[in-house]
Each structure stands twice: as C-alpha cells, then as structure tokens.
Amino acid sequence: MRGTITRTGDRVRTIEYLTSHGSIYAPVLVAGIAIALTSGLLAPFVVLKRLSFIGHGVSHTAFGGAGLVAALGLIGTMGQGGLLAYGVIALCCIAAAGMIGVLTARSGAEGRLSDDTFIGIVLVGAMAVGAILMKMSSGSGPMLDLETLLFGSIVAIGPTEAIAAWVCSIVIGLVLLIERRRIVFWTFDEPGARAFGVNTDRARLVLLLLLAFQIVVAMRLAGVLLATALLVAPGAAALRTSDRLAQVVNRSALFGVIGVVGGLVLSFETDWPPGASIVVVLLLIFGVSVIFGKPRKIEGVIAS
C-alpha cells in the first residue's frame, strides 16, 4: 500500500475523514449500509435461482441509460444531487428487468429461447445503444465520467443520496417481506410452486424488479460493472455457512454490511475506487467461507 496511503500524522484517514470531514464521508457510509443490507437480503435468492447473469444484464442496461442521459443533455447533473440523470438510468434498468421477466416467462411457456439468450441480447443491445448515443452527443456538452459510471464514486453520494438509498432499501425490504413466501417457494421449486397456485411469472417479475431497483441504488456507489457483486458474493458466502434459510439470509446481510463498510474503509485509506474496494473485501469473505464453510451442491435437483 506504499505510495497510496496518505496519512495525516498517526491518524487513520477513515477516522479523520469521518470526524473532521464527516459531512462528506458519513453519508457514504450511511448509504453503504442501506445498500449492503438489502443486497444481502436478496443475494441468497440470486445465487440459488442463478440470477447473477440477469443482474449483469440489468446493470449493463445502465450504460444504455447513460447514453440516453447524454442524448438528453443531462450529463451535467450526474454528480452529487444529480438524481434526474440517475432517474433516467434507473428507469432504463427497471424497464430492462421488466422486459426480461415478461419475455422469459413467455419463452418458458412456449419452450423457445432460454433466459440466457434474452439477457445476452438485452445486455449487448443496451451497451450498443449507449455507445452510439454517447458518440452522437459528444462535443455538444459536458462529457460523461465513464469511470464513475463503471466503477462508482464516493463523491457522487451526499445526504440526498443517503436518504434515497434508505428509502429505496426500506421499500425493497417491505416488498420482500410481503412476497417472501411466494419468492421462497418459487426459487426452491418452480413447478411445485405452480402446482400450489403460486403465480411464478409474477414471483419472477417481482424479484427481477427488486434486483433492478437494488442495482440502481448500488450503482451510484459501486458502479455499473461491480454493483451485481453485492448481489452475489454475500449470498454465496452465507450459503456455505448454514443449512437454514433464515440464518443464510441474516448472515448474507451481515456479510454485505461487512463487505461494504470494510470496502469503504479500504477505499478511504487507499483512494481505490469504492466499488473495487468493496468487491475485494467481499471476495475475501467468500474466500474464507470457501475454506471454512460447508461445501454445497448448487446444481442438484430432486428427482422424485
């Protein structure tokens, strides 16, 4: 870490930042905890139902959304407090999640194309549209900060974003609470859930929209490319520590918080991008769970 850590006297930068520059860095931690909690709640279902690729598809749609932001001349509002630009990006992500949910349900019923195919199409389509729109609008205004979009930024989060993150997290948590039995049944046994009268297409759509919502919230901090890590790593680690769903969900939320807080501290200390720092800590947690946790067979299904 030599050359990257700049210490003021003997004090660790994180503590100094939080004490003397609290107004700047405290919202980042506050928002980070909200993001980590809800990501952790959703992560076990993402891992068990193998939705991480869908998460990638949805988050990459943000790139297309950013292209739309550029075309609409809203790039100047993408810094702190720029909720309008992020609102446009969020709408693109949520629309993509809805589209994937509806199309995969329809294709499943007709037995045509797989989920992966649709997600692959949405992912590359959004990236292509984003790149074209950005190119078309270049030179006509401020340039998009691609690094912030792709890897996240601490300075993009202020008190408004922290409040927004908590409001979104509470909404996600409430919807998850209301829908939990249907989502659990669906993720555990889709044909069985259908036979018990669960509208599995609706359960899929609800979970995908929650994921999209969560990715949009996490994107500001962790960036487009790394936001989905928050929706995978804590759940994968927690699944290796317990055979009880409630414990898995609780531990996933805990690992998420440790990953985000630890990653932000690492980011404060090293000036590394926050998204990358969070992912590094989450991977460490996952590594520890792989070494010390129980091996799990993810691909098995019951043939009764």
């Binding site: 889709e190 055979d243 009880r244 299904v301 009764s304």
Partner: peptide, 25 residues
Amino acid sequence: VAQRSGAMLAYPVSGHDVVMMGATV
C-alpha cells in the same frame, strides 16, 4: 407431487420447512 419436483437439493431448508411452505404459501 410432480414427476420431477424441480426442487433444489442445495436449498437451505429442512423437510419440515418444505412442508411448511405448502401450508403457508
């Protein structure tokens, strides 16, 4: 009871939990 239930063996639930799912869906 379906021919292939499609249920995931890796799911962190017990038999009791599975029956509870049916009772509380």
